[in-house]
Amino acid sequence: VTSPEQYIKHPLQHRWALWYFKNDKSKSWTENLRLISKFDTVEDFWALYNHIQQPSKLGFGCDYCLFKDGIKPMWEDDRNKLGGRWLMTLSKQQRHNDLDRYWMETLSLRCQLHTDCPEDVCGAVVNVRPKGDKISIWTGNCQNRDAIMTIGQQYKERLSIPIKTLIGYQSHDDTSSKSGSTTKNMYSV
C-alpha cells in the first residue's frame, strides 16, 4: 500500500492562472492575451510547466504571465495599479544561458516566499524581446517597502545574482507615465 504522501497533491496557498501573450498586430492587445490554464497544487503546476514551451523557444513579442486567479496580467487591474515590479533585464546572450532557468526559479519562488506579506505578490511576467528579455515579479502595493525589499532579496538570492549587481523595483505608475526609455527605481537591492 503506497503512503498518502505519494498520491495526495500538495496544495498551494493560492490558485494561479497562466496567461500567454502572442504579438499579433492584426488583433487588439487584449485579444492577444490568452488564458492557458489554472492550478492550485504543486503537482498541477509542474504538469503545466513541463507541458508548455520554455520562454527561450517563444517568438519575439511573446509573454508568459502567471498571476493569482482573479488578477488580470496588466497594470490597470485593481490589484496591480498601486503596485510595481522587481525587473530583471537580460542581455541577448542570457536568452540561451539563463532565461529558462531564471523563469523557472521565478515561478517556483512564489511557493517559497517567507515574507510577512506574501499577499503582496500578484504575479510574474516574462517578456521575450529582440533587444533583451525581461523577467519581473509584480507586487500589489509599492508603498509596502519591507515586504518588497524582502521579496527582492530572496529573488536575488534565488537567482544567485552577485551582491554588487543591483536589481530595481519600479512602480507601475512610473513605468506607465515614463517620458524617456528608462523608469526610475523606487527601490533597489
Binding site: 500538495h10 496544495p11 496557498q13 503537482e43 510547466y49 517556483s108 511557493c111 517559497q112 506574501p118 534565488r158
Partner: peptide, 18 residues
C-alpha cells in the same frame, strides 16, 4: 491563518516525480 510554503528542494523534486 496558516501559510503554505515549500522549500526549493521539495519543489524541484516534485518536478521530476511521476
Amino acid at each position: 491563518g496558516t501559510r503554505i510554503i515549500y522549500d526549493r528542494k521539495f519543489l524541484l523534486d516534485c518536478r521530476s516525480s511521476p
